[in-house]
Amino acid sequence: MSLSIRHFTRTYAVAGGPFTAVDDLSMDVGAGEIVGLIGPNGAGKTTTLRSVAGILRPTSGHIAIDGHDLVSDSIAAKQRLAFMPDEPHLFEYLTVEEHLRLMARIYGVDDFERRARALIEELELTGKERSLPGELSRGMRQKVVIACGLVRNASTLLFDEPLTGLDPVGIRRMRETIVGRAKAGACIVVSSHLLHLVQEVCTRVIIMDHGRKIADGTVAELASRADLTAAGSSLEQIFMRVTGHDVEVGSSKSEV
């Protein structure tokens, strides 16, 4: 199993007392699987991804990448991981090519030149190799972040809103990239509010709300669940039903 999460809980200390962002989450994602992590704002998706990426420490529970525990064996676990956040955080003083080189050095990429060239072409960054992040559009910066994640052979890829800022061509390429990496054996988790993207590319969907997992399965499995049959086969309708928003939407429509 590529990614294993067991009884993961994460709380934050806030002025009003501890706030639980993710509560007792357990899930497994296997090689070749693309899992869509969806939920309303504040559901705990980003906290989950950031914890899996090693940015936040779990308050309790265990996260393992290819059997390596993220806390006790963090270097081995992180070596197998690539995290593409929604906000393109780059070093403002390093060029695109230098970012890729930096990642290659950190992760020990052997055939860097070939991989970098291919990625730059794949992500349409040709001609921008010597540009600083400040000279790039948001979409371009997002592509650089993705390139940094893909320049090494990670077994687990985490995408947080991967399509933010991308143009239509970029969106199509991104979808192909995600599917292609899964076919090559990577385990992929995609967090997104774009439910049509999730339905299209993901092999499985996990719906979270208020820090808890409230649904887990393929779209077909969810649609056939006894309490969701009325929702139909669309992920959007399933999502609305599971999170209890279908009633609100229906009532506001009737009011109009």
Binding site: G54, I55, S74, H89, F91, I106
Partner: peptide
């Protein structure tokens, strides 16, 4: 940049 540095296997 800590959120980026913390993901590095170093």
């Amino acid at each position: 940049h800590l959120d980026l540095l913390k993901t590095w296997p170093v």
